[in-house]
Computed example of a mutant assay.
Amino acid sequence: MRQFRMGEGTFEEGSPELQSALAQAYERKQRPLCLCCEKPIAMYIARVDGQLLVKRMPLSGRDHAPSCPSYEPPYELSGLGPLIGNAIQIDAATGAAVLKLDFSLTKRGPRPAPAAESTPSDTVRNETQKLSLRAVLHYLWEAGELTEWTAVWARKRGWGKVRASLMNAARQMETRAGPLGDILFVPEVFHAEDKAAIAARRARALAGLQAAGSGPRKMMLLVGEVKEFPEARSGRKVVVRHLPDVPLTLEDAAWRRLSKRYEVELELWEATEKAHLVAIATFGISSAGVSFIDEIALMVVTENWIPFETVDELRLLSRLAGLRRKSVKGLRFNLGRDQPRVCATLPEQRPAPVAMYIVPASADEDYDRGLAEMIDARPEMTAWVWRTAEGEMPALP
């Protein structure tokens, strides 16, 4: 059972006094200290569904004891590794993650630029210097602990919890344009009976976004689940779930590029009945009041909101979803599809945590060399490797 120190008191997780202590610490902006190690580790307090929860600070998971629920496998195993210290920097004074973005949140001119997708992930230009649009989505998922799953959470993760996790994670991040929590818009769960109140809250969140004249256009970030891409008079509309009355426009050329760049994600979404398609986009509102998308990236996730990139990954995640052990999905961030990264980890496995890799049939010598280097760099973890070209999935640890 975890213990937290707040002020002069020490509280066990699950104790009846914890919520009142968290409420006082939240009001005073105090950070709880996790006592899993000899040197206490700073955490932060998040409000989820009216309850106060203690969450780990960005990139601090590896500092916790392996037996602590806040422990996180080394970030070098995923696409997060090359970004740390470059595109993602931790402010030692505040604990906030300072992000360098590879896209703009300001546009000039009377019309939005036609770009529709982030820089292709297999380019080298900004791989370690700035975050692509997709990498920001991956980092929000990672920091929001949405990459984690165990069977005891079955049926307990809907869009409301996803939204709360994303918004709480964004509040721990800073960008050149300001706090990410002020720039990010994630639609709340839509209830028809609360339609007017939801619209009023949305209007407040988007106040100042509508363009006036031909000056610089302010943009915001949207993260939402895509419902459909219906045809429009010119291009497509992007209909986001929980935003039924706010279709976003996407120009025809942008739609063609999006269809090509994210062909795999769209195909997996169409073929997987319970999958969700998550979009992250920079968006604005024209002087006529029309909401438009400037840049967009896509990610397909399981029914439990765990990202996956191939049918083989989906098969492994389906197996892991039935375990009572925690699994953590590894994400690609800015890495190209031809570069190895951990598919998932089992951090609670004993006697040692397990790093799980799926080697595609198309893997070449460079891929195998990179994989071997990753495995050798983490001797404290047991490697589980599935070479899909050699047959069925090996037995789970």
Rank of each mutant, 00 (worst) to 15 (best):
P397T: 05
R387A: 06
P16M: 12
E390G: 04
L331T: 00
W384K: 02
R256V: 14
A177G: 08
P110G: 15
T123G: 06
A377L: 04
R155K: 11
V54N: 04
E231D: 15
K55H: 10
C37T: 15
I88P: 04
S214Y: 13
L323G: 11
I198W: 08
V152K: 08
R369H: 14
V223H: 01
C343F: 09
W149V: 01
R201S: 08
S327Q: 08
R201W: 06
A154I: 02
Y367A: 05
E76W: 05
G7R: 06
V300A: 08
G215K: 10
S214F: 14
E225Q: 06
W153K: 09
E295F: 03
R134G: 11
H242A: 01
W149R: 01
F292I: 10
D49W: 09
A196W: 09
L33P: 07
R204D: 13
P351I: 09
F292P: 02
S20F: 07
G391D: 07
F190V: 03
E267W: 10
G235Q: 01
A212K: 13
D102V: 01
G330M: 00
Q172T: 15
M6A: 11
W269H: 09
I358G: 01
E348F: 11
A197K: 11
V98W: 07
Y75E: 13
M374H: 10
G158R: 11
R163H: 08
L52S: 03
G178T: 04
L317H: 14
K39P: 08
K218W: 12
P32H: 03
V239F: 07
C34V: 14
H276C: 01
A93L: 15
I88Q: 01
L133C: 02
E38Q: 15
V342R: 05
Q30S: 12
A279S: 13
R62C: 11
S67L: 14
P353N: 06
R337G: 13
A363P: 04
A97L: 02
W141V: 02
E313M: 05
P187F: 00
L59M: 12
D194N: 05
P187Q: 06
A92C: 08
E72T: 09
V359M: 03
L80P: 00
E348D: 12
E273G: 10
K107C: 14
V124E: 09
V264G: 06
T388W: 03
A21W: 07
V328E: 12
L317I: 14
P307L: 03
S118E: 10
G85I: 02
G61W: 02
L209K: 03
A46G: 01
P247S: 10
E193Y: 03
R378M: 05
H64R: 10
F103V: 11
A207S: 15
G284D: 09
F190I: 03
R261C: 10
K237A: 04
G215A: 10
A199S: 11
G224W: 01
G215C: 07
S165F: 00
V124M: 09
K156Y: 02
L268N: 00
G322E: 05
I285K: 12
E174H: 13
G289M: 11
